[in-house]
């Protein structure tokens, strides 16, 4: 059976006045039905653009230049807008980072939910309203009838994100792309929403791509991790393997900069240097200027290759040993 989503060698570029920003430059990843994939990387590494590319929502001056996005066997890049519109919201949904900005401020919640239902199924307004109410209850919103008649500004951030999740779950999609949906929220609300989404997706059999720059958030959630750097996937594999034995020097740096209880207060190891500008990337391995292991073998750029079964890495000198300190979670 084919995988639910398979992205092959995706390139999405922004044609700006200053030059071409290769925000996504050869990303390949895949998601199985019901699986949770954590897409991790620093700010600007191209995580959001990858998510938007899958849904065909890249705004000009950006565009998907090449690659394949196979969803349930159908190529979304070749299919164009017509094919995508019927998948969006129905089989692939998205949740955004800033809940303050995702709901239209001048439309009532019921309007924004009912239109989502009726965009895909031909039901009466009453039936659409009934489904909307049900979806709100499922994400833990009490007195849904009152809430439906409110405007977004009457809700707190966490509440708005719940509404956005309820909208995403309206059609029980096969895949949800969640773009840092908890980053803007309080830690306690973050944890609640995290576990709610996990439960909902498990119940509905929905696969999840959870985009984040915070490894700690995703390590307890994801089945597999894909680590992005400068528009590429540089390491990909089962979450437990990557946390215990990261092979790419960048991933290792990321993990070691996550604080744990035991080392609290100790100096965290940091990745030196800055994220490179997309307009002038180094030749060879894009991590080369920051990498402690770099040498002449690192040009040309290494491909993403399986180092162990199900665990691939884009590096000529990968770490092969486990980390000394395995975090206890």
């Amino acid at each position: 059976m084919s995988r639910l989503l398979e992205v092959r060698d995706l390139h999405t570029h922004f044609f700006t006045r200053d030059g071409v920003a290769r925000a996504v430059d050869g990303v390949s990843l895949s998601v199985d039905r019901g699986e949770i994939l954590g897409l991790v990387g620093e700010s600007g590494s191209g995580k959001s653009v990858t998510g938007f590319s899958i849904l065909g929502l890249v705004d000009p001056p950006g565009r998907v230049v090449s690659g394949q996005i196979l969803f349930d066997g159908q190529d979304l890049v070749a299919g164009g807008e017509g094919a995508l519109r019927h998948l969006r919201g129905k089989r692939i949904a998205m949740i955004f980072q800033d809940p303050m900005m995702t709901l239209n401020p001048v439309l009532r919640i019921d309007t924004q939910m009912i239109e989502t239902v009726r965009a895909h199924v031909d039901v009466s307004r009453d039936e659409a309203l009934r489904r909307s109410r049900e979806a709100l209850v499922a994400v833990g919103i009490s007195s849904p009838d009152e809430r439906l008649q409110s405007y977004p500004h009457q809700f707190s951030g966490g509440m708005r994100q719940r509404v956005a999740i309820a909208i995403a779950m309206l059609h029980k999609p096969d895949l949800i792309i969640a773009d840092e949906p908890t980053t803007a929220l309080d830690v306690t609300i973050q944890a609640q929403i995290l576990s709610e989404v996990q439960t909902l997706c498990a119940e509905a059999g929905t696969a999840l791509i959870w985009i984040t720059h915070d490894l700690a958030v995703v390590s307890g959630l994801a089945d597999r991790l894909a680590v992005m750097y400068a528009g590429r996937i540089i390491e990909e594999g089962p979450t437990s393997r990557i946390i215990a034995a990261p092979m790419h020097p960048y991933t290792r740096g990321l993990i070691e900069s996550v604080p744990h209880g035991k080392r609290h207060g100790a100096l965290l190891s940091q990745i030196k240097g800055m994220t490179p500008s997309l307009l002038k990337l180094p030749s060879g391995c894009k991590f080369r200027p920051r990498c402690p292991r770099a040498d002449d073998a690192c040009t040309p750029e290494p491909p993403l290759e399986a180092a162990r079964p199900g665990h691939s890495v884009r590096c000529v000198h990968p770490h092969t040993e486990s980390r000394i300190e395995v975090p206890t979670t």
């Binding site: 705004d59 519109r85 900005m101 239209n104 239109e115």
Partner: peptide
């Protein structure tokens, strides 16, 4: 450019509804 327009598109609304309503 607002997120809510992108979100409206991500919900699968027709381009017409996004422009005429949102």
């Amino acid at each position: 450019l607002q997120d809510y327009v992108k979100f409206a598109r991500a919900k699968g609304l027709s381009g017409r509804r996004v422009v005429m309503v949102h």
